[in-house]
Computed example of a mutant assay.
Amino acid sequence: MKIGNGYNNYLNAVRQNQTNAQNKELTTKPGHAEKEESVQVNISDAAKQLAKTNNTELPSAKIEAIKKAVLDGTYEVSPEKISGSMLETMKNQRK
């Protein structure tokens, strides 16, 4: 059975890409920017709404209390709550 040399091929390709990038930087004249193609990005309405809610909400008192308890070493983990939430999340993912 022959084992391929894929990892070495990968490393050689990475090194070649790095060398090519360095050579490209050296050959580009300072002050002369290359013309780049513009890219149009469309953000969905759901993503926009999510961004708004994430940016406007400040950490609540509950979150601050949890952070303080973790730093003090007094935070207690409830395995029942964690496993219940995990099961609920898995059930929702199947839907």
Rank of each mutant, 00 (worst) to 15 (best):
M1A: 12
K2L: 15
K2W: 14
K2P: 15
G4Y: 03
N5E: 04
N5R: 04
Y7G: 06
Y7P: 00
N8V: 07
N8S: 11
N9H: 08
Y10K: 02
L11C: 13
L11W: 03
L11G: 02
N12C: 01
A13T: 04
A13S: 05
V14S: 01
Q16A: 13
Q16Y: 01
T19G: 00
T19P: 00
N20C: 01
N20H: 02
A21T: 05
Q22R: 06
Q22I: 08
Q22W: 05
T27F: 08
T28V: 09
K29Q: 15
P30Y: 09
G31L: 08
H32M: 14
A33H: 10
K35Y: 04
K35R: 10
E36V: 13
E37I: 05
E37V: 05
V39Y: 06
Q40G: 06
V41W: 08
N42T: 14
N42I: 10
I43M: 07
S44N: 02
A47E: 15
A47D: 15
K48F: 15
Q49S: 11
A51E: 13
K52G: 08
K52S: 12
N54E: 10
N54M: 11
N55L: 14
E57W: 08
E57H: 11
L58P: 09
S60P: 03
K62T: 15
K62V: 12
K62I: 12
E64T: 12
K67G: 01
K68A: 12
A69Q: 12
V70H: 06
D72I: 00
G73Y: 05
Y75Q: 10
Y75V: 02
E76N: 06
E76L: 08
S78V: 01
P79K: 13
I82F: 04
S83F: 08
S83T: 15
S83M: 13
S85K: 11
S85N: 14
M86L: 14
E88P: 00
T89V: 08
M90V: 09
N92E: 05
Q93C: 02
Q93S: 04
R94S: 05
K95S: 03
